[in-house]
Write a protein that binds this DNA or RNA. Structure first.
Length: 204
DNA sequence: TAAGTGATCTCT
DNA sequence: GAGATCACTTAA
């Protein structure tokens, strides 16, 4: 909790200053309905923003909702029908149906008996693809992102928007090319030749 | 390096 | 219904 408060309004990569009030553009579905690798790459430097649900202890008093945001610094792309690292590679199932749907919708699933993974659906309807949010500044690791931003299955199938309480903003930060890297995806050794795809993008 | 944890999927 | 697997984290 302390960690999240520290992150709010933090300077993204230390080197460049910018004014938060200058630019806060919420990314709409049009941003995500584009080639997945391009979306993935461009997500670096964008901000994941969470409005925490209001709490009401007694039912009478409600505290003001609180907002947290942090810059996205690591993502992975999962693309198409044949990518063996993707849940979609074995066809449409109850779990992965959202990947085949409209871009800009959250795909949240549970794994290893304890971790929630946060993905945003990309590309045209009918074509299964998504980008996994692997890390945000101050919170490296996909399961930590969901833990600290309190994201679980309730966010699954919901669009990324202010209305749903979890969205992505362009706040004007730009990552220098020298700090952008790409590499193989993590934890997909089982995926045959697909594991060697350089579909992970991260900021160093 | 390995335990922990339970939903999901494949195969009977 | 059983058994294997898993887009991970933590502690050692």
């Amino acid at each position: 909790m302390v960690l999240i408060q520290e992150i709010m309004g933090s300077n993204p990569i230390g080197s460049e200053k910018f004014d938060l009030s200058r630019m806060r553009k919420v990314l709409a579905s049009g941003f995500f309905d584009r080639p997945t690798l391009r979306v993935a790459k461009e997500l670096l430097g964008k901000f994941l923003v969470r409005r925490f649900p209001r709490r009401s202890a007694s039912g009478l008093r409600k505290s003001a909702s609180r907002e947290a945001a942090a810059m996205i610094i690591e993502v992975e792309a999962y693309i198409g029908f044949h990518d063996l690292a993707s849940h979609a590679s074995r066809g449409k199932t109850a779990r992965n149906t959202v990947m085949f749907g409209r871009a800009g919708v959250w795909y949240v699933y549970f794994t290893y008996g304890m971790h929630w993974m946060l993905n945003i659906v990309t590309g045209p309807k009918g074509y299964p693809a998504a980008v996994l949010i692997r890390g945000i500044e101050g919170i490296p690791g996909p399961a930590r992102v969901t833990k600290y931003f309190k994201v679980d299955r309730r966010m699954n199938l919901k669009p990324a928007s202010r209305k749903t309480g979890l969205w992505i903003e362009d706040r004007g930060a730009r990552i220098p090319k020298s700090r952008m890297k790409r590499g193989m995806r993590i934890g997909v050794d089982y995926a045959g030749s697909w594991k060697r795809k350089l579909w992970r993008f991260y900021v160093v």
